[in-house]
Computed example of a mutant assay.
Amino acid sequence: MPELPEVEVTRMGITPHVVGQTVTKIVIRNSRLRWPIPDAIKNIEGQVIRNVVRRAKYLLLETDIGYAIVHLGMSGSLRILPAGAVVEKHDHVDVVLASGEILRYNDPRRFGAWLWQQAGENHSVLDKMGPEPLSDDFNSDYLVAKATGKRKAIKLLIMDNHVVVGVGNIYANESLFAAGIDPQCPAGKVSSQKLQLLVSEIKAVLKKAIAQGGTTLKDFKNADGKPGYFAQELQVYGKGGQPCPRCGEVLIEIKLGQRATVFCANCQH
């Protein structure tokens, strides 16, 4: 499933091709995604795309009259293709640009979404979200305040979009390992010093993943079709039963909040 770095890499990849371009046509081959694609999405026809913004794992194609909101779901991708590119089985949406290029959305599992937000309004899917993890609003004072008195496991806290957006399972595992924190520890029991370190490690891990093009596990490919390479840098995610890269002890894998959680009992406490 594409997480924040993959979505950010996609944003960076498509932006030079779409910003400043007029949308000449929207082609919808299959409107049955996670939610039905609203007819209003065609309002973007004839509009100039002013910017591409990421909010959490959503991409917003901004125009003067509103925004097309895109979520990649579990298997979605956005690619820039030349006019006349062969249509593949799961190519559900095309944004045809005046340049002759196409922004094409492919989604085999159809858990993604295309939504419409009128200018000046706020779509419900974007309501009540926490700060972006790479922003100044996500800092140690903020996380300490959110963790104080909480019995919720620290891993589940940092994966809660109401607390901070976009820290998905892969990056939560990696950040907690880097900070030496047991993912099962109640958030309120983690020291302020450890929480300060955790904020720094979340930012560092996400920045590194973005710089390396994201993490390719099963479905993700970035906007130019090349896979991300951060998977080669993973320290613990997907490595349960293998030696800890720090101390050599066997990495433990458990389910926490129904998600695979890998940690070193010796290094994370």
Rank of each mutant, 00 (worst) to 15 (best):
E6H: 00
M12L: 14
I14E: 11
I14K: 11
P16F: 10
H17N: 12
T22Q: 14
V23Y: 12
I26K: 00
N30L: 07
N30C: 10
L33E: 04
R34N: 06
P36L: 08
P38V: 05
D39P: 13
I41E: 01
K42S: 13
N43F: 07
I44W: 04
I44V: 15
G46S: 08
G46T: 12
Q47L: 05
Q47R: 11
Q47H: 06
I49A: 04
V52E: 08
V52G: 09
L60P: 09
L60M: 15
E62Q: 15
Y67G: 00
I69T: 03
G73Y: 15
M74S: 09
G76C: 03
S77L: 06
I80S: 12
I80A: 10
I80F: 10
A83P: 06
K89C: 02
H90M: 04
D91A: 04
H92L: 12
V93Q: 06
A98V: 03
G100D: 04
E101R: 11
I102R: 11
I102A: 01
L103C: 14
L103Y: 14
N106G: 04
P108L: 05
R109K: 07
G112V: 12
L115Q: 03
G120V: 03
H123F: 03
L126T: 09
L134V: 12
L134Q: 09
S135C: 06
N139P: 10
S140M: 07
S140A: 15
A145M: 13
K146P: 00
R151M: 02
L156A: 02
D160K: 14
N161V: 12
V163K: 13
V167K: 08
N173H: 07
P186D: 04
K189I: 00
V190A: 07
V190C: 05
K194E: 11
L195D: 08
Q196I: 00
Q196P: 00
L197M: 11
E201L: 14
V205W: 05
K208H: 13
K208P: 01
A211F: 00
T215M: 13
L217M: 14
K218N: 10
K218C: 01
N222W: 01
A223C: 04
D224C: 02
G225V: 01
F230G: 12
A231S: 08
Q232I: 00
L234Y: 11
L234M: 10
K239V: 01
Q242C: 03
Q242G: 03
P243W: 13
P243V: 11
P243R: 14
C244T: 04
C244W: 12
E249N: 14
L251M: 08
L251V: 07
L251Y: 07
I252W: 04
K255F: 02
G257I: 07
T261E: 07
V262N: 02
V262A: 05
